[in-house]
Simulated scan of single mutants.
Amino acid sequence: MILLTLSMTIFAYLIGSISSAILVCKFLGLPDPRTTGSKNPGATNVLRISTKFTAATVLFLDILKGTIPVWGAYFLKIDSLYLGFIGMAACLGHMYPIFFNFKGGKAVATALGTLLPMGFTLGGLLIITWVLVVKLTKYSSLAAIITVATAPLFVYLLKPLYVYPTLMLSALIIFRHRDNIKRLLKGTESKITHKM
């Protein structure tokens, strides 16, 4: 079981390292998201430089990067605590991709993907939370921070067995947003300008 868990953790990191934003933008002849907009290779920045459809494609692929390894590990009967490490590995791959010089995004969509195997009710609550905060504030980063901060509460109410893995994941995502938090406090954080 230890070898299987280690193998799934490595697999999760490698699949997380596949940057959907960079590859989709390259395929469509768009600017590299690491060099334009917020310089973050994620769906929100792709929305800034392209269309909603392109951003939605990146979002979908980034979610899959989290869902595939965690769902696979779940069906392989890997312990719930280790599912958290596998989910974190997928997110770390997105944040520090080995295929793209370790310069990646914030892994919010990938984190959502790691939580979806717990059920679509949880996924729906997280998506609703994110959308509501974005609608009210126009800050994608604030929406991400609030969503991942409330995720452990939702998990506790729905599937308490997975609270500790979710706490680990939430802490990682919030830590990755530390610069955004500083800009939010200073009032210099960029807003989403596209109408949602």
Results as ranks from 00 to 15, higher is better:
9 T>L: 13
178 R>V: 04
194 H>N: 12
5 T>V: 03
111 A>Q: 11
188 T>P: 15
132 L>M: 09
139 Y>M: 05
187 G>L: 02
108 V>E: 04
4 L>A: 15
18 I>F: 14
189 E>Y: 03
186 K>A: 13
150 T>R: 03
99 F>I: 00
195 K>P: 00
114 T>H: 07
172 L>A: 03
165 P>T: 02
111 A>C: 15
165 P>H: 07
98 I>S: 01
52 K>L: 05
56 A>L: 14
92 L>M: 15
83 L>F: 10
142 L>S: 02
190 S>Q: 05
141 S>F: 02
48 R>C: 01
19 S>P: 00
130 W>R: 00
183 R>Y: 14
166 T>H: 07
190 S>M: 03
35 T>K: 14
134 V>M: 13
178 R>D: 06
100 F>H: 10
60 F>Q: 08
101 N>E: 14
164 Y>W: 15
195 K>N: 15
113 G>K: 10
141 S>I: 02
8 M>I: 12
86 I>K: 09
44 T>R: 05
91 C>E: 10
137 T>Y: 03
92 L>Q: 14
86 I>S: 09
169 L>D: 13
51 T>L: 05
193 T>W: 00
60 F>A: 14
20 S>D: 02
159 K>F: 07
50 S>V: 01
140 S>E: 09
53 F>G: 03
140 S>P: 02
179 D>A: 06
137 T>S: 07
58 V>T: 01
97 P>S: 09
19 S>T: 04
25 C>F: 12
14 L>H: 14
78 I>A: 03
41 P>M: 06
121 T>H: 10
152 P>Q: 11
73 A>F: 12
84 G>D: 05
74 Y>H: 12
137 T>V: 01
55 A>K: 06
40 N>G: 08
67 T>L: 08
174 I>T: 00
154 F>C: 01
170 S>C: 08
179 D>E: 13
67 T>Y: 14
138 K>V: 00
41 P>Q: 08
67 T>I: 08
47 L>Y: 15
99 F>M: 01
95 M>E: 02
160 P>E: 11
125 L>T: 01
78 I>S: 12
165 P>N: 04
65 K>E: 12
12 A>M: 00
30 L>N: 10
77 K>S: 12
80 S>H: 15
8 M>K: 08
24 V>G: 08
150 T>A: 08
26 K>R: 14
36 T>V: 13
48 R>Y: 03
195 K>C: 06
71 W>K: 04
74 Y>C: 01
196 M>N: 06
184 L>F: 02
88 M>R: 00
131 V>R: 11
53 F>W: 06
179 D>H: 11
5 T>W: 08
173 I>D: 04
